[in-house]
Simulated scan of single mutants.
Amino acid sequence: MILEHALLTVRPGEQEAFESAFGQARRLIAAAPGFRGLRLSRCLERDTGYLLLVEWDRLEDHTDGFRGSPAYQEWKALLHHFYDPFPVVEHFATVLTADPTS
């Protein structure tokens, strides 16, 4: 499993519109082959900050599959105009985990 990580900064005053647009956009990514799930969280210290975490089966499911699809063009149209600056997206592979019993 691959974890995509993006710190998103939304233009001030556009948070509600962004969250609404993201609610529409999530169906686009959810239909992508290799998509496992996502979590969008709002920063408590900066109300314009969000953390997007997306789980993929493989890196290529995101970089080639989703980003190369017509659905990604819709995703971009719905969301990219909210960001300032444009986010850096990185991908991670699990090295170590812990839970309350470890």
Rank of each mutant, 00 (worst) to 15 (best):
A17G: 06
A17T: 11
A6V: 04
V54M: 04
F22E: 03
Q24Y: 06
R39Y: 02
L38R: 06
F86K: 12
A93T: 09
D84S: 14
P85D: 10
D64H: 14
S20N: 13
A21K: 10
D84V: 02
S69W: 05
Y50C: 00
E16K: 14
S69C: 10
G68S: 10
L28M: 03
V54C: 01
I2F: 09
S41D: 10
P87T: 12
R46I: 09
F66M: 09
P100G: 13
D84W: 07
D57A: 06
A25Q: 02
T63F: 02
I29K: 09
A30D: 07
V54K: 04
S20E: 15
A30G: 14
A93R: 13
E60Y: 00
Q24S: 14
E19C: 05
F86W: 11
R26P: 02
L78N: 10
F66R: 08
A31K: 03
T97W: 01
A21Y: 07
A98E: 12
L38W: 12
G65C: 06
E16N: 09
G34I: 02
P70R: 09
L79Q: 11
A17M: 10
H81A: 15
H80V: 12
F35S: 03
R27N: 09
Y83E: 05
R46G: 07
L96M: 13
D84Q: 15
I29F: 03
P33V: 03
H81N: 13
G68Q: 06
H80A: 13
F86S: 12
R46F: 11
D99V: 11
H81W: 13
A21V: 08
V95M: 11
A21G: 09
L78H: 11
E90I: 02
R42F: 05
E19Q: 10
G34H: 01
L96H: 12
V54R: 04
F86P: 02
H62I: 05
G34W: 03
P12C: 03
Y72A: 03
P33L: 04
T94G: 06
T97G: 08
P70Q: 07
V54E: 05
T94V: 12
R58F: 08
L3W: 00
G49N: 04
S102Y: 01
C43W: 07
A6T: 04
V89S: 08
P87F: 09
H5T: 00
Y72Q: 02
F22A: 00
E45M: 06
L53F: 09
P100S: 13
Y50K: 07
C43A: 15
R67S: 02
F18E: 11
A71R: 09
F66A: 05
L44Y: 08
A25K: 02
E74N: 01
F82G: 02
E90S: 15
P87V: 11
L51P: 03
V89Q: 06
L78P: 08
G13F: 10
L38G: 06
D84A: 14
Q15D: 11
R11V: 14
P100A: 14
E74W: 00
T48F: 01
L51Y: 05
S102H: 01
L52N: 11
A6P: 07
R46D: 15
G34P: 02
D84P: 00
A32Q: 11
